[in-house]
């Protein structure tokens, strides 16, 4: 009898708890909406305006300047390639310092983790905008911004995959007299290769999207075309650029998927 009562109480408690969390959630939603002066009528009005804008001002696309777009499009791809290669190399080194099972010294681990989480938490477009101040308008600040952010992102995910390997293998070959370098080369790297490929290819996709929008802050590539044509209200040209961008991203995604299937 008493047993039954206890379970009833627990159930009731759970119910009350659920109600409270629901009310709490709704309160947060209400506060959030109040904070930015949000109302549904405005949203309901804005979405048709937005879609109408896309379909009337953007279509039909204007292909008259296509030849001028080739340079920036290639720049976008080159920047993504360089940024991915450089940041994957740097991130490998950082990751080995950062992972708990391969770090040469715990101090390295904490310092590297701190730097990486700082670099990663600032959006790369902000880094790029800051670097535009330093290096002037051009491809270079965008490239460096992508490298900064990409290195931090990859270092974190690489370190996580290295940590997942665990210490069985390293301990085993340490027991037969392997040095630190041997351990890395024969125990860590071979097991790490599949996740290395898959994360690096993923990073390439992110970098391609990133490199396409760098132009918005003045760092070259397709983004500068999009910003430039929109600032001049030549939306039909913008839509051509966006179409090129969509095609480029879909093609690259298709290629990376195929590569992933083959080499992992």
């Amino acid at each position: 009898m008493s047993h039954k009562k206890v379970t009833m109480d627990l159930k009731e408690q759970k119910k009350i708890k659920r109600y409270f969390s629901l009310i709490f959630f709704l309160l947060i939603v209400g506060l959030a909406m109040w904070y930015v002066d949000f109302n549904f009528i405005e949203l309901a009005k804005s979405i048709p305006v937005f879609l109408g804008f896309i379909f009337t001002d953007f279509l039909p696309p204007n292909f008259s300047d296509v030849k001028k777009y080739v340079g920036p499009v290639l720049d976008t791809i080159f920047v993504a390639v360089i940024a991915t290669c450089v940041s994957s190399f740097l991130a490998m080194i950082l990751a080995i310092f950062m992972a708990s099972n391969t770090t040469p010294h715990p101090v390295f681990r904490i310092v590297c983790r701190g730097i990486v989480s700082f670099l990663r938490s600032i959006p790369f477009l902000l880094w790029a905008a800051l670097l535009v101040v330093v290096f002037g308008v051009g491809v270079l600040p965008g490239l460096l911004g992508l490298i900064l952010y990409g290195t931090a992102f990859l270092a974190r995910v690489y370190a996580e995959s290295v940590e997942e390997i665990g210490s069985e293998c390293t301990e085993a070959i340490e027991a037969v007299g392997a040095t630190y370098v041997h351990q890395l080369k024969h125990a860590i790297i071979p097991q790490f290769i599949p996740s290395f490929f898959s994360w690096t290819l993923f990073m390439f996709e992110i970098n391609l999207r990133g490199s396409a929008i760098l132009g918005i802050v003045g760092a070259g590539g397709i983004g500068s075309l999009i910003k430039g044509t929109m600032d001049l209200f030549q939306y039909s040209k913008t839509s051509t650029v966006i179409m090129i961008l969509i095609t480029m991203i879909l093609v690259v995604e298709y290629i990376t998927t195929r590569i992933r299937e083959r080499i992992i």
């Binding site: 290639l74 360089i82 051009g138």
Partner: peptide
């Protein structure tokens, strides 16, 4: 890419 890209 490094050769092609225009870095001053």
């Amino acid at each position: 890419s490094i050769v092609m890209i225009d870095i001053d």
